[in-house]
């Protein structure tokens, strides 16, 4: 292990461009924070995560967390439209549940979603939208570059892109 690290370091010195790997490395994952909220009635938020090309183009949904198991007159899918930015950007033409995309709602905490490997080169914005029953709704956007991060104000905490 140690010799390899030494070799890599040596390689970095000979190639100055690699000295700042955080800039050069492609983005590999997004970490989303669902904050713990001190409210009388708490429900886990619906969350959508999607990529949008900067110059316009088809958005790509990476994750949708909703109440998968709720059935009956008001199934969990009924409230997906409350993620209104995502809904308008393509959520409305998806079929739920979606393989590898949809999942159950999450408790407060940090979650890391790996970015798909087949994203075409180009500039993207990563969007995270959260909507909570009896609560608020928030949309947070961050450029898709490793090291980029932002913090939501109400329904979302830190959203950070890490290197591959």
């Amino acid at each position: 292990m140690r010799p390899t690290a030494f070799l890599l370091l040596g390689g970095a010195i000979t190639a100055p461009a690699l000295l700042s790997p955080a800039v050069a490395a492609p983005p590999g994952a997004v970490t989303i924070t669902i904050p713990r909220l001190d409210v009388a009635e708490y429900h886990r938020p619906y969350v959508a995560v999607w990529l949008e090309p900067v110059g316009g183009g088809a958005p790509r949904t990476l994750a949708v967390w909703y109440d998968l198991k709720k059935r009956g007159n008001d199934p969990g899918t009924k409230w997906l439209a409350d993620l209104r930015a995502w809904w308008r950007k393509g959520g409305r033409s998806m079929t739920m549940p979606a393989d590898g995309v949809s999942g159950a709602t999450r408790t407060p905490g940090q979650y890391t979603i790996p970015l798909p490997a087949d994203v075409k080169p180009g500039q993207y914005v990563l969007n995270v939208e959260a909507a909570r029953e009896t609560g608020g709704r928030e949309l947070v956007s961050v450029p898709l570059t490793a090291g980029a991060r932002t913090t939501g104000k109400t329904e979302l905490g830190v959203v950070a892109i890490s290197a591959r």
């Binding site: 007159n73 199934p75 899918t77 009924k78 409230w79 997906l80 439209a81 209104r84 809904w87 409305r92």
Partner: peptide, 8 residues
């Protein structure tokens, strides 16, 4: 005016 699903 905006609904999700076809049981709304």
């Amino acid at each position: 005016t905006v609904f999700s699903g076809t049981d709304g």
